[in-house]
Design a protein around this nucleic acid. Structure first.
Length: 505
RNA sequence: UCCUCCUUAGCUCAGUUGGUUAGAGCGUCGGACUGUUAAUCCGCAGGUCCUAGGUUCAAGUCCUAGAGGGGGAGCCA
């Protein structure tokens, strides 16, 4: 039994293969079957003259997602995705498929999410999951090569700590428990034992967020390094992200092509250093007080808005012209064609008008940004819009950062945190920083945040027994997958997404 | 929780100032076509216009309430 990905090693040979019919086209005495088997996609041709009558009849009646076993000759054909097709000599039906709900046409996100268990079979989803797999592989490779030890943090935690995020509450025997929102504090303990570690596991946030970049359950990679300061931390993040992106570019060409991802942005990223902005500089850029590449954020956003408006006007004109043409009297076929185009333009307008409503709000919030606040989603969009690589923002006001963040000795209002913002509006993919080592400062911070001291006794021990400078960060897997794949929604990047309002399938 | 947009055929969507029998494309099914790439062409079938009230001679269209969904804010990876 030969897998589709190995067809290239069997050119000219007659082989057996099996899989599912994902699409079919037919001509007289010819059936073109698009077969998928998880390893790839291939066109299989059943010619009435090359197979027994009953086999051709079976092929003719095959429906979408029928499972089949095929025998045939592998033939090279440059036009095919994998470069090879199968000239079928025999075919056997394994399992029928009646009224498969997902057709090869458009569907809405809600319908597809209700059918997620079947949607996973489609080509686009296949490509995304293959890239997700490669990213995970690359992450592990990178840290293993760099001498990190993979360790895991617990999922049940006893404290709802670390501040503002809402957690999922649960029961642990007779005690209240919560699902972990991060493994970081445990990571610090493990780094004190193993030197350099990383955790890789699921995290849970019970925020009722309804945006294209949020999930309630997502996977996070959290490295933690003893004897690292924040500058070393930022060097590592940059090296790490470049490694992962390069690895995916080298090994997932076919998948990126299926997704129609423009990979030129990644080529730029490989060559250039990531911009490193202090919080102060980033705020100047957001408020439009500082130019980047000759433009301020306000100018750029206004340009974006003008472009959106121009596109809407253009579409409206296109609709008007076609409506006039229809009113003038045309044949049925032509009328249908024009009507379809009109509908498509109207749908585009709906999306553009959403942008038209949002951009002015972002502009307002950018202009009125108050120094000392944390960045909101729109502020991140504004700042990443200015650059074509990920941007690092470091040295944040300590008041808006977590209690364990290291205070800057030269600038006591600031904490040594770093956020990495992905380009193209994919948001914050990394959050991290150097950790506070001063026991007294930590204790006062815990009190300031009104956190239960008893839950942190063990954590404070880390500062009592051989405390050392250390740093680390957390990378959101799904946001990274979304950015590299260029997906519209983060929920396409995980097999069975959990987000507000979605628990099944 | 707040703001905003949406809900019409299996799916994706049109439906004008309220006005006769609610439309299209795709999909299904039947047929045509020897090489198709979301194939194409012809034909048949397919409707609780989200729900409940209300205004009106008349409601898919207007009003009120509710349900569900998209996007955004907050929060964050």
């Amino acid at each position: 039994m030969i897998q589709i990905k190995d067809f290239k090693n069997h050119e000219g040979q007659t082989i057996e293969t099996q899989g599912w019919l994902t699409n079919k086209r037919s001509g007289k005495g010819l059936e073109f079957i698009i077969l998928r088997d998880g390893s790839g996609f291939a066109q299989c041709i059943v010619d009435a003259e090359s197979v027994p009558n009953d086999v051709f009849e079976t092929a003719k009646r095959l429906s979408q997602e029928s499972s089949i076993k095929l025998e045939g000759k592998v033939v090279k054909d440059e036009k095919q995705i994998g470069g090879y097709e199968l000239h079928v000599t025999n075919l056997e039906l394994i399992g029928t498929s009646v009224d498969y709900p997902i057709t090869n046409k458009e569907h809405g996100i809600e319908f597809l999410m209700d059918k997620r268990h079947l949607w996973l079979r489609s080509k686009r989803q296949w490509a995304i999951l293959k890239i997700r797999n490669r990213i995970i592989f690359a992450i592990n490779n990178f840290f293993q090569k760099e001498g990190f030890v993979q360790t895991d943090s617990p999922i049940f935690t006893g404290n709802a700590a670390e501040g503002s995020t809402t957690l999922f509450s649960s029961k642990y025997y007779d005690q209240d428990a919560y699902l972990a929102q991060t493994g970081q504090l445990y990571g610090e303990a493990m780094a004190m034992a193993m030197g350099k570690i990383y955790t890789f596991g699921p995290t849970f946030r019970a925020e009722k967020s309804k945006t294209r970049r949020h999930l309630s359950e997502f996977w996070m990679i959290e490295p933690e390094m003893a004897f690292y300061n924040n500058d070393m931390n930022m060097d590592l993040i940059e090296k790490f992200l470049k490694y992962v992106v390069t690895d995916v570019l080298d090994n997932c060409k076919n998948e990126l092509e299926i997704l129609e991802r423009d990979t030129t942005v990644f080529e730029a990223l490989k060559a250039k250093p990531f911009p490193r902005l202090t919080y102060d500089k980033a705020v100047e850029i957001i408020k439009g007080e500082k130019e980047v590449n000759g433009k301020t954020s306000i100018q750029l956003l206004n340009e974006d808005l003008e472009n959106v408006k121009a596109k809407i006007a253009e579409n409206k004109k296109g609709i008007e012209e076609r409506e006039k043409e229809i009113a003038g009297g045309v044949k049925k076929g032509k009328r249908n064609f024009l009507q379809a185009k009109i509908d498509q333009l109207k749908q585009e307008i709906n999306k553009l008008e959403e942008a038209e409503r949002n951009i002015p709000k972002w502009l307002e919030s950018a202009k009125n940004f108050k120094y000392g606040n944390d960045f909101g989603g729109s502020d991140e969009t504004v700042i990443t819009r200015m650059f074509d690589t990920p941007v690092m923002v470091y040295n944040w006001p300590h008041e808006i950062k977590a209690f364990y963040m290291k205070r800057d000795a030269d600038n006591p209002e600031m904490a040594k945190g770093v956020d990495v913002l992905a380009p193209e509006g994919y948001g914050e993919i990394v959050g991290g920083g150097e950790r506070e080592t001063n026991l007294e400062l930590l204790i006062s911070k815990i009190e300031e945040h009104k956190l239960p001291m008893s839950e942190f006794e063990w954590y404070l021990d880390l500062r009592k027994y051989g405390s050392v400078p250390h740093a680390g960060f957390g990378l959101g897997l799904e946001r990274t997958v979304a950015w590299i794949c260029g997906t519209q929604h983060i929920r396409e990047t995980i097999p069975f997404p959990r987000y507000y309002g979605r628990l099944r399938p």
